[in-house]
Write a protein that binds this DNA or RNA. Structure first.
Lengths: 204, 204
DNA sequence: TTGACATTTTGATCATAGTTCAATAGCTTG
DNA sequence: CAAGCTATTGAACTATGATCAAAATGTCAA
């Protein structure tokens, strides 16, 4: 039955092409603010025409979302790899997460854009929600491993929120270098991790 | 010395005109997502031409920043008014802040836009930093009133971050109504307030 | 009041963005 | 090889923020 195989190959080819565009976008996002990247730039970087971009993505938003999802999977994987032998340490998980956000500010910018912006298709919304949930689950697992039992889900929500808030509050810190910001956000992450470890059992 | 008075009056007049544009923008932001509000819409709402907008603001970003600063002053005032007789309660301060964010999502969208987006003039950056610092100071005062003494400044940073993170994480909650989101974000705010009250003295 | 000068307002105009789609090029298959 | 299908192309369309010469309005000394 060569038909099925051929169809599969075609699909793989299509995915490869899609990946070329995705990689071009990723390259550009590493260089500059994601809001200022244009279709024309992505097309040039990928070596295709504008129209081809729209053959693989219905619009720029969905392309950006694809980039975001790729990064989100990466950070989820990183979090799952923390300290594979011993049980995951809460402070370590927070540190890895904040380090990733420092290294990938476009990821955080996109997260804020998609979470607050709206105007996503139903399909895109589902994808976004799924990946955010996966991230949350990872945080929850770390909390569970830290011995938190009561209100586990709610506490995980609060911790996840707290971590996400660090960057929005201090990504721009007047008169500080990137290194200073990294140090400061990591210190805040540590504080938040400790606060949750210390106080959680006594919550209502 | 009538010259000085006249100059003052002119300045007041100019400020009044500026306010007409500001109010028009505020009205539109209450109706729809701030990213989708156009210069033409603001001009129509304010009853002036496009060019006049640019007479009072060098570009749309500065106009948006002005709207943001207006809201930021309002929330700072609200926070200062919480429970004027008794010492400010930490949970109450968190509740007021999160309630305001729920009622004024455009404010939060703008905060995230300006804090993460960049491309502000030097003057705009200073204004933004000032108002964020004022907000922070208010949180710090509430923590101090709650009895926190050690690492006050750093703890205030962490708490401020945590509160800001609530909205970015849960403003979009799959399948939940606005009321549900309000309830959930307020619950998270309460948890965070308690966590900080309980655990802070034992921090390093 | 008048006329000359200064200030403010106006909106057509420009550059650039995302998006569309008829024409073209490239493959596949009978 | 030819017919038909699919993928690619980029000029063209709409809408955006921003500009600026011209017009309207305001100011004030003579």
């Amino acid at each position: 039955m060569p038909e099925i195989r051929l169809a599969d190959l075609k699909q793989m080819e299509r995915n490869t092409r899609r990946h070329i565009i995705l990689d071009a976008a990723l390259t550009l996002f590493a260089e500059k603010d994601f809001k200022s990247v244009t279709v024309r730039e992505i097309a040039r970087q990928a070596g295709v025409s504008i129209g081809t971009i729209y053959n693989y993505y219905p619009n720029l938003t969905e392309l950006f979302l694809d980039v975001f999802l790729t990064s989100a999977e990466e950070i989820t994987r990183l979090l799952n790899l923390t300290d594979p032998k011993s049980p995951p340490d809460l402070e370590k998980v927070c540190e890895v997460y904040i380090t990733y956000l420092n290294d990938n500010m476009t990821f955080y910018q996109m997260m804020s854009h998609f979470m607050l912006g709206g105007d996503l298709s139903a399909d895109a919304t589902r994808k976004l929600d799924d990946i955010m949930k996966a991230l949350m689950d990872r945080i929850e697992a770390a909390l569970a491993a830290a011995g938190i039992r009561e209100n586990l889900r709610l506490t995980a929500h609060a911790l996840f929120s707290a971590l996400n808030g660090i960057m929005i509050s201090y990504a721009r810190y007047p008169g500080k270098s990137d290194d200073d910001i990294r140090r400061h956000t990591l210190r805040l992450a540590k504080i938040i991790a400790r606060v949750f470890k210390t106080a959680s059992p006594s919550l209502v």
